[in-house]
Amino acid sequence: MNKDRIILEAEDISVNFGMYGKGLSKYDLTVIKRLNVTVHEGEILAIVGASGSGKSVLAHAVLGILPSNASVGGEIRYCGKPLTKSLQREKVGSEIIMIPQSVTYLDPLMKAGQQVMGLKGTKQQLEEAFRRYGLDMSTEKKYPFQLSGGMARRVLISTAVISDAKLILADEPTPGLSEDMADETMRHFRELADKGCGILMITHDIEAALKAADTIAVFYDGMTIDCCTAEDFRKGREALKHPYTRALWSALPENGFVSADVSALMKGAS
């Protein structure tokens, strides 16, 4: 593994949605502006940040699954090559795997086991993953609507971890999972990264993220406003510089559950 090798590089990214306003007037809604993100071989980059700040949209831009009214500016490179539509078609699903935020990405008509194995997975891999994530083997035969929230989430994780992906884009992998399960997921991510996989993990669960991530990027309103090492976050509030990042830390239920006037904070910061 070469830790200096860049797997994913998104440079100066912007994303606009063409929208219709009153009386069919058209306007552009900018949701990401001048964003830069880099993931190296063996690196776990955690992206945290405000709801609606463009985290999922960024992941969807990399995967090429934004709706047709979206336009993407800037350049996304995968292993040094521009990630064009045709390269996306070639790599997404095999080398580039997503764990989606919405459980509606599960195919409602396909049993969980089939979805997890995908095209290349083996029964043995499936059993290993299910054991690791505490899923009973009977889950294999269940359709998505028969899964509980946390089971659906663990099925989605299993799908990604048994593929031999080079890049995993995990959009909220752990909500609704117990602390043990979230920890197990983080341990697994770390193992995959240590074997050379690059992982971009979008998460609200800072506590879990800190157990695995190398770097933490903080998003707000379509921009990266702060980037720090997981180490800084672990040290606590005093080690954090940006006021939004500090407020985020203090808002964790275990750190005080303090809500703050974010727009005022941001005004103060700029």
Partner: peptide, 16 residues
């Protein structure tokens, strides 16, 4: 039912 699991810490605190 697990209503705030997908909210960032600040939004979670605010919503609750």
């Amino acid at each position: 039912d697990e209503m705030s699991t997908m909210l960032d810490a600040l939004t979670q605190a605010q919503i609750w």
